[in-house]
Write a protein that binds this DNA or RNA. Structure first.
Length: 431
RNA sequence: UGGGGUGUAGCUCAACGGGCAGAGCGGCCGGCUGUUAACCGGCAGGUUGCAGGUUCGAGCCCUGCCGCCCCAGCCA
């Protein structure tokens, strides 16, 4: 009875007979010899079957294999430069576990719609596996970064009352004959927790019922939102650049292979080291106007404007202190220029655009209440949020980083839909 | 929601200015002992998104509808 081995550890079994378990990725038959590439999740290995080396029964079984059939392969592990992965299995025994009939995804080009309809199978493809492994590494890096800095993770509710940033549309659900909404941010809740723990973050799914159909929007996406008591806007940006640099570094360190599978040119990522350039909103508008943009002071930057700014730098760039009218109600007024608020957007290079939105929060009770009324928000829903300014208010700042946008940038994918296992978009709820 | 595209074999795409609907891949059959998206020969595979219109004749032109893609707005 051969020992069961994972493909990633085959190097330790050279000269031994092992059994590997997995799925047939590709196969090539050649008369009296044949090759299959087996995937087990830990890696891929080429297995060779020679007609003279196996019984006629095994040979017939091999001839009948199809793409994505699940199998047990038993054989001798050899080093072989001709095999992808460097190791090869000379098959002695083959057990068919589950036959795959007419697998729809070929090792060829397919349209995006076709693939998304079969997302449950598309996940098996090598580039999709690479993207999702990078996502996994980024998620782990996020937790490690904050854990090492003594942040406390706070899980914020997904079912909420009418509270959030209000500008965006919320998904409404029936909550025991009451209206509830899927959370569009955990920020307001981590602000509460910051007064309990000092440094906190939340990391979970958020929901936006916007009818956007662009390469950088999903209706369900994951966002990490740190919140730090006593931090001002400048502290906030310093934390952001350290955070982003750490995530990129981890991906470069631990996902070399995946980035190679994705044919990602990593030179642009190697440059992502602090400090990131900082551009005052007003200077950004001036620069954009000189380059022919129609943007006027007071407006938010459009997608084309963001691209123009980010293309002027070789690493992520902060644009800070936007006009208050263009931003959310909770951002703190800039004492040096009350038309603006203490906030920042972090724009990733290579035309990726915004991956972080952050700000120092309004900590003055009266000014915050005035802003809630200006925006005509349901005041009664914000009672607890105002309490944070009534019982020991404190300066604090935080930000939200979009996980999918960050992964798309690191992986060099044009569209963020490939960076989440099962994307939720306008008109797509299946599979 | 607005603007621009697109829809032809299971998949990816061809088809002159309106004139017999095709290829590659995949499938099936056969051949081949070192393939790397193998190769060679053969076979099957179509209501050209749907409904109407113009025309001797429509995959192609016109109208409506539907799906999808890209861009904009909103944002992460």
């Amino acid at each position: 009875m051969a020992v069961i081995a994972e493909v990633r550890e085959l190097g330790r079994h050279v000269g031994e007979e092992v059994t590997v378990r997995g799925w047939i990725q590709t196969m090539r038959s050649h008369g009296r010899i044949g090759f299959v590439v087996l995937r087990d999740g830990s890696g891929i290995v080429q297995a060779v079957v020679g007609q003279k080396d196996v019984s006629p029964r095994i040979w017939d079984r091999f001839q009948a294999l199809t793409q994505e059939s699940s199998v047990l392969l038993t054989g001798l592990v050899r080093e072989d430069a001709r095999a992808p992965g460097g190791y090869e299995l000379t098959v002695r025994d083959l057990v068919l576990v589950g036959r795959s009939e007419d697998y729809p995804i070929q090792p060829k080009e397919h349209g995006v719609d076709f693939l998304l309809d079969r997302r449950h199978l598309w996940l098996r493809s090598s580039q999709q596996r690479a993207v999702l492994r990078v996502r996994n590494e980024v998620e782990q890096a996020i937790h490690d970064f904050f854990y090492a800095r003594d942040f406390v993770r706070i899980d914020t509710p997904i079912l909420t009352g009418a509270i959030g940033e209000a500008a965006t549309t919320l998904f409404e659900v029936d909550y025991f004959e009451q209206k509830a909404y899927l959370a569009q941010t955990g920020q307001l809740y981590v602000e509460a927790a910051a007064a309990a723990f000092g440094k906190v973050y939340c990391f979970g799914p958020t929901f936006r019922a916007e009818k956007s159909k662009t390469r950088r929007h999903l209706t369900e996406f994951w966002m990490v939102e740190p919140e730090v008591a006593w931090n001002d806007s400048a502290d906030n940006m310093r934390l952001q650049e350290q955070f982003v640099a750490y995530i990129v570094e981890r991906a470069l360190e631990r996902c070399r292979n995946d980035l190679a599978v994705l044919e990602r040119d990593t030179t642009a990522l190697e440059r992502v080291t602090p400090p990131f350039p900082r551009l005052d909103y007003s200077d950004a508008v001036k620069m954009l106007q000189e380059r022919g943009s129609e943007v006027e002071w007071g407006e938010d930057l459009g997608g084309a404007d963001e691209t123009m700014v980010s293309e002027s730098y070789d690493r992520p760039v902060f644009v800070y202190n936007y006009p208050g009218a263009a931003k959310a109600f909770y951002m703190k007024e800039n004492p040096a220029d009350p038309r603006t608020v203490l906030c920042d957007d972090l724009l990733a290079p290579e035309g990726v655009g915004e991956i972080i939105g952050g700000s120092q929060r309004e900590d003055d009770y009266d000014r915050l209440l005035a802003r809630i009324r200006e925006e005509k928000l349901p005041e009664e829903a914000y009672g607890w949020y105002l309490d944070l300014r009534r019982y020991g208010t404190f300066p604090h700042a935080g930000f939200g980083l979009g996980l999918e946008r960050t992964v798309a940038w690191i992986c060099g994918r044009a569209h963020i839909r490939e960076t989440i296992p099962f994307p939720r978009m306008l008109y797509r709820l299946y599979p």
